[in-house]
Design a protein around this nucleic acid. Structure first.
Lengths: 135, 135
DNA sequence: GCCAAAGATTGGACTTTGTCTAATCCCCGG
DNA sequence: CCGGGGATTAGACAAAGTCCAATCTTTGGC
């Protein structure tokens, strides 16, 4: 699940994003681990060795990646947005005690009976969050 | 869908909540309309005639109502939490352009293939959000 | 009905997450 | 090698929500 520098550059280019140093660092953090990270965690990870990326750039970059379809937002915690490097359709298990987020493959879960949308509307996505907690 | 003062008092008491003036005002705002309101909207509505309820009380009360199962949080907008007076199982249509939230009755939508939970875990709820936007 | 204790409410300071801005920096094409 | 457009930055700002200590209400026992 880790990417070489070349692969990351190609990935950004494919999405029309100029591969700057900071963007590569952020992309590396996102794609080198299969976790759901919040902006502040990414900021910390990216600056672990040498502080070289600002808060503003992390937010700019995450929004850019999201707009370009490189990553996806996961909205389960009212306190912060998590970013998911997996843009394939899938869903989430959310541990309300610990805040831990786990993937549920899309093919495991099927939804039937989707309501008809108002005319002129299209579905952008279906997010399913299964909230769990310790007994 | 509107409740009398007596009904609201009974509703709060049934959930073990002491019916104070402010709580009744907030409950009235929530239950007298079938909308999904955010805390700041509730604060405004409650103080429309005479300012008499503080921000802190609105937040305290919403958290209390939520903990007592009187209302439910709807987490779809990373900017703010919405509160849903309908605690029956159901799901939501979220218009990403306008922010509008609409209910989907639970029996319209069925989910199959729920993954097995880790031992000692229980499902607290399943939230489905269908994100829609104008074509 | 009255009183004290328990609980509720309050303004305002504070925290956290995220955005904005204007200045600076860097990188690429010519 | 140079100029300009895009990227980055620090820090100010904004909005949502929490916390606190002081004050005010409610309520249950008499």
């Amino acid at each position: 699940m880790s990417y070489s520098r070349h692969q990351l550059i190609a990935l950004l280019r494919k999405h029309g994003i100029a591969p700057t140093h900071q963007r590569l660092e952020i992309a590396n953090v996102l794609f080198s681990r299969c976790e759901h990270l919040a902006a502040d965690q990414i900021l910390t990870l990216v600056n672990e060795r040498h502080a070289e990326t600002s808060k503003a750039t992390v937010y700019n970059t995450l929004n850019l990646f999201r707009d370009c379809g490189l990553i996806r937002e996961v909205i389960v915690d009212p306190k912060r947005v998590f970013y998911d490097p997996n843009t394939q359709p899938h869903h989430h298990l959310y541990n309300v005690d610990t805040g831990e987020i786990t993937d549920i493959p899309a093919d495991d879960l099927t939804v039937s009976g989707m309501p008809e949308l108002p005319p002129g509307m299209v579905t952008e996505g279906v997010d399913i969050v299964v909230r769990i907690r310790a007994l």
